[in-house]
Design a protein around this nucleic acid. Structure first.
Lengths: 203, 203, 203, 203
DNA sequence: GATGAATGAGAATTCATTCAT
DNA sequence: GATGAATGAATTCTCATTCAT
């Protein structure tokens, strides 16, 4: 991995661009958190970012593009963390994979609870459908691979089907746990979800 | 529950009111279906209802109140159907309750697929949070009652906790099945969900 | 001609509408005169009209519709006056028709010199192409009819062709006279244009 | 007219300047033709010219200056051609001067029909008033000189006055012919205009 | 009660122009 | 000189809500 000779003039420009995009995404996130989706506006985001409304449009085609990028950034972080945890567990003992993944997922969700609320409860799902589908697909694929590898030990249905079921169930239960705080502890939730998924896969 | 003596002159007025509210709700539903949430407006709803925008505000405090009421109506219908199915099954054989309820739920969801899409994928969840929570609570309560009655045969956790888990998982899986149409048949979906829930409850 | 029973409630509403449209057109004219076409804006027009920007859009679809209507009003007035003068002269002595019409036209143009300047020199011709074409067509038709009636006495070409030539030449010469004020008196202009048109028609 | 000794180092700079101005004018013309006046912008012109928006402002004070220069270039070309044709005819037989000039003018206009349309129908006349006036003045002067030379044979009014009339009539009729394509052939148009002008001058 | 014209704050977006590099 | 990112005032248009009739 040799660092290539950096282009003389392009590097700082790219750096500036990255900085502006970063500023806008951060500001977008802040505005979404502060004002909610309905009350968010491109001018507010620009003001929060300390730039002019016109500048924002040099980096994003329109309002949706800004929201999409903010959401994408969050979705990617989440996706990365869950995928990493899952991958780490793939070689380990079978009975801890679900357990460990649930904790990793809950960690990630709880760290960003405020934004999760905006993301899940305020944004029309259509706005982030693709991003969410991307996360789900990525995790489903990993899960399906895991199930395929254990074929014979687990429920005899196509791995993709079992993965679809398991991923969506886990997603919903963890997300709603974080956002709705039903009367059970985190460990109790994990115990139940783990029990459900494990029982299902072994049935 | 006996209806109290109705005021002599108020009855026809209440009747008119009911009619207006009905007109507005129907129009609201139509506009949401036709134009989607973003393009819906109070003026469009009023026009569709054949009344003036001003009149709408005699029956609903603001735009949100209209959307809420439209959603509430749909949620109540859904809630009624699922609750009825569940109640019907409570006295029957244990192993068909989940199965029958899943079919009843899928019937109800598929009948209103277009509106379900608006409701779940277009409306910000905040808009219908309470209504949805109401449906979930009602079904959770029934489920918890059922589990309490079978205490001893089923997973040894507080019934309300198992119900919370089961109801949310089923809700998510059936809704996403109808809206996302993953590559499995309805019977295959029911088989998996039934297997998961049953295995969980018996674990 | 019996006046029909006036609709009880519709009349005053129509009256209000007419009033609003009138207010907007007047304000539009004033803003065009004061600020010119480029600096004119819908909000300025609304402010000048003493109404809100939103109200303007109840009567006109967009900015162009307002400008078009202002222009149309002016074009219609002009068209009416010239057509009336021309019609009046059709039965009279041949040698005064051009003369009288030129004076009528110059009267009309000079009375509205300021707006004529906006109309001809500021508005992109595309903006008022249709309106202008309408005026020209109307006058051309009358002129062609006149020439057809005199067939035998006048230049032996299709009347529509001679009319096309004459109308456009007169239009240009009178308009530029009013706007550019070349060093000749009005009577001198009329003498020249009259001479040109008359000589042409008799050639 | 001898070029003064050029400053030793300034020459190549002037050359570069000339090149940049040329690039900008060409780009401006292309953008006006491609996008029309309303959709044209300084940034588009700069991009089309392959320079930066900032550079444009080293050669032109503002947007209007660019448009003016583009228009001026076209007007000068046109002016040159018509003046040349007119000059060529001054020594020839009187009765072919108008005829030949009309053809020369129509040639020039038809060759640039697309830009003529932008120039005449899209650009607010104010934008090109001076340039157009320049063309008209130049041609009028030539025409007046010609008429002065023929004094005695032609209509007895100040030559400048007759020239003003004739030049504006011809301009309008040829331009509208090219842009509006009325139902007559080019030769028919020339015949009529020639007849009108000749008859007028001899009246 | 019903009406619907009027409201007006505010949204997204553009583009001529500047100025630090 | 050249650059082009940044500017920000200004523009068109929307729509939830009000209130005089």
């Amino acid at each position: 991995m040799v660092a290539p000779t950096p282009p003389v003039r392009k590097a700082p420009q790219q750096e500036r661009s990255r900085l502006m995009v970063e500023k806008i995404l951060t500001a977008g996130r802040e505005v979404l958190l502060r004002d909610g989706y309905d009350a968010a506006s491109t001018n507010k985001v620009a003001k929060q970012a300390g730039i002019s409304p016109g500048s924002l449009y040099q980096y994003f085609a329109d309002k949706d593009a800004v929201v999409d990028a903010v959401v994408a950034k969050y979705a990617d972080e989440l996706s990365d963390r869950v995928a990493a945890s899952l991958t780490d567990q793939l070689g380990g003992p079978d009975d801890s994979l679900i357990h460990a993944t649930l904790h990793a997922l809950l960690d990630a969700l709880e760290e960003n609870e405020a934004f999760l609320r905006v993301f899940v409860d305020e944004l029309p799902r259509t706005r982030n459908h693709e991003r969410l589908a991307g996360v789900e697909q990525r995790v489903s694929d990993l899960m399906a691979a895991y199930l395929a590898a254990r074929r014979g030990d687990v429920r005899d249905v196509p791995p993709s089907r079992a993965a679809w079921i398991v991923v969506r169930a886990i997603e919903q239960l963890t997300v709603r746990y974080v956002l709705d705080r039903p009367p059970m502890s985190r460990d109790e939730l994990v115990a139940e979800v783990d029990a459900m998924v494990t029982a299902y896969l072994q049935s």
